[in-house]
Structure formats: C-alpha cells, structure tokens
Design a protein around this nucleic acid. Structure first.
Lengths: 202, 202
DNA sequence: CTATGTGTATGACAAATGTCAGAAGGGGCC
DNA sequence: GGCCCCTTCTGACATTTGTCATACACATAG
C-alpha cells in the first residue's frame, strides 16, 4: 500500500530533488507538486493525497494557512510542514491548525521518509529541537490586539497609519504599543517587533 | 571528463537531494558536501573541486565570503551561488567576489546541471530575472557612513546607542539617518532599513 | 587653486513617540 | 454580584526623532 504525497515548495530545485528522492522509496509516491499556497490547495483538491508535505514559506499562502484550509476540506489528508528557519511560534500555530508533523529541512531524506510514514500512520511528529525551542520560548504575553497592532508596526509605519489601518484612535495605538514594548522588555516598538518576530509571536 | 563538484548548503534535505539529482548526470560527480561556510572552505581545500555550488545563506560564513576566500586559495575552482531569496545587492557583491554564476533555487535540477557545465567551461551565468532586478535597483545612493549608521539602526536601537557604537555624536547620527531616509524616500529610519535591506544595500 | 563632496559637529525647532493616569463598557469566572 | 482582564478612549507630559541651517576640516577632481 503506497502513500500518495503532495509536495509543495516554491523552490523548484528543492521540490524536484525531493520528489526524486522520495520516489526512490517503494512505499511512497509523489502524485502532485505545487509552488504556491493556492496551487497546493488546488492540487490537494484534485488529487486527494494521503499526506501533504508543505513548505512553511510559500508565496500566496503559507503552509499553516494551507493546512487550515485542508483540515476542513480534506480531513483525511495529513499535513507535514517542513521549514528552513523554524521559529518557535510557528510550531504552535501549526499545531493549532491541525498539522501532524513539523520538521526542519536539516533532516535527511531517509529520515523524512520515515516521518512521512509516521504521520501517515496517524501519529504526530515534531522535531525535538524545535519543540524544545517552542517550550522554552513559552507563550506570547501579548493580547490579541497588542499583537495585531505590533504586526502593523512591523514595516515601520508611523502611528497615524497604524491607527487608520487598525481602525483605532492614535492614542489607543500608542497605548498598545507601549504595553507591548514593556511586556517584551524592548527599547522601543521596532526592537519589540524584532523580538516578537524572533519568538514567532507575530 | 567529469566535473567534480563541491556542494554546500546547511539544509541536509536539500543538499542530499541535490547531490542525488546531480549525480544522475553522467558528466557530474559530487565529491564533497558541506553544511557551513568554514566547512565548505575546508572541503574545497581537501578535495580541490572544479566547481563549488554554494548556498548564499549558511551559518559561519555566507556564500560570498567563502567565494572570496576560494578565489585566492583555489583560483581554478569556479564558484556558483544558489539562493532562495535573491536580493539585488547580493548579486553585485557576489560578482565582485569573483563568483561565476548566480541562480535562484527556483530553477530545475536539469537546468542547474546545464549551468554548472556553462560555468565549468569558463563562462559566466547570471539568472536573467535577478540581473534585471539588480540593474533596476541600481547602485546604492548611500554614502559609506550612511550605510554603516543605517546598519546599526537595523535592530531598532535608539540614536544614543547607535552614536556610541559608531563613535559619533548623536547629532551626526541623526543627520546621517535623516539623509539616508530622504535618499530612500522612506517614512522614517525603520522603513529605510527595510528598503535598504530589500535592495541589498546593507 | 577652487569647487565639490564627504565626514563631522552644533544648536534649534517641529513632529512623532513613549509613558502615565484615568475612565467606561463588556466578558468570563468564582 | 463582584472581581479581573481586555478593549477602547482621552488628555497631558517627557523624551526621542526628524529636519534644517550652519560650520569647519579634508580630500579629490577639474
């Protein structure tokens, strides 16, 4: 009984190479490939794979967003996320989205094949190192609103613009930013954005 | 006559897969692999490959730094850089370091094999799209000092800290930042940092 | 030699940001 | 019901940034 795979990664080189390597395994078959989030979704609908191996960073919609959609549309399809630079918060988001596996791209292809089988068998697998990072980084101390506002501050926009985009008064925005900054122990909101990013809290 | 290759990429999955795919070509042979910059250098010294295929982002020393060292230590070894997210400025830096090829990871393995042959034959190859980006982005309008100060501003440090780290007066720092911000047409220095990053000017 | 550009610096002013106190409504929990 | 937290707002104030004018030394191109 072979496991039917969907492979999604925006880097053709990696996707192709991965497809070739995984196809070497007798019990694995790559039935579809995609280069973007929406494409992955379309391919999943069309082919109904057993396991979807998704890159975390893709144009259009990231792996977690795709996973969220897949959960309702194709509940039988298990999702495995692979990522280059795994930040703690991503793992949490992924798990909440019903992802069954989460591994860094530093694993070998052989190992990945094993993990695909694990996930297909209904078990979950999370890279121990990433899990440790996520646990030590802990939960975000930010409230939903604080995180949203911080997110909008990410590209260096002035308070006026953030206020408009969040449909809040400027005063409120400054309060949220101030509170986020102090919770994160940052010097100012830009450093706060950086910190929150590192921990995967935004 | 087979081309002897060194493969350097910190992601085991990709490196392994790539090695497998490139080995499928009759005239290519992967003689060494490395996961970090320094390791790549050591491997190159030990095996003297014909072509070094380096990832741009690696722990220790990035692809361009490795290329710089290789140029003097092993002039016969041609360097080909592959990258996930190619920013215009990187290409320029790479070319200045004597790199013979520069391609995004979105190319197929077949195509990469061809490019390796092109480079090995003594020609240069730069991905047309990246080249166009680099040309349209043009040269940095920033003076050396402006770029340095902007770099120090990158992690959201306040002016006082930047001034200290750059051994400049706070007023001077603000002048440089102001000038950099206006040259880049940014809203404020943080947006300026982002812009300069995108264009590869810092 | 002179003009120009860069590096550095001040001082002053305007604008944006950070901080704090306080207030009001709503949801959840014991 | 009472308490606590989140959301939202306002106003006031201190601090930090951003902008501009001006200045001088130094290098380099013309």
């Amino acid at each position: 009984m072979t496991v039917r795979l969907l492979l999604a990664d925006d880097e053709h080189l990696i996707r192709g190479a991965l497809a070739a390597l995984l196809s070497l395994e007798d019990d694995l078959a790559v039935v579809a490939e995609a280069a973007t989030g929406p494409e992955a979704l379309a391919m999943a609908r069309a082919h109904g794979p057993d396991v979807a191996v998704l890159d975390l960073q893709m144009p259009g919609a990231d792996g977690v967003k795709v996973a969220t959609s897949l959960r309702t549309e194709l509940p039988s399809c298990k999702v495995l996320i692979v990522t280059s630079h795994g930040r703690p918060g991503h793992l949490k988001r992924a798990l909440e989205a019903g992802v069954r596996g989460f591994v860094p791209k530093t694993v070998s292809a052989r190992r990945l094949a094993e993990i695909i089988r694990t996930v297909h068998a209904g078990n979950r697998y999370v890279d121990p190192e990433l899990a440790a990072d996520a646990i030590s980084a802990g939960d975000s101390p930010l409230t939903v609103r604080e995180a949203e506002v911080l997110e909008l501050a990410a590209d260096g926009a002035p308070v006026a613009e953030i206020a408009e985009r969040a449909a809040l008064s400027q005063g409120t925005v400054r309060n949220y930013l101030s509170s986020a900054v102090s919770k994160l122990g940052a010097e100012n909101r830009h450093a706060a954005v950086r910190l929150a990013r590192e921990r995967g809290w935004v």
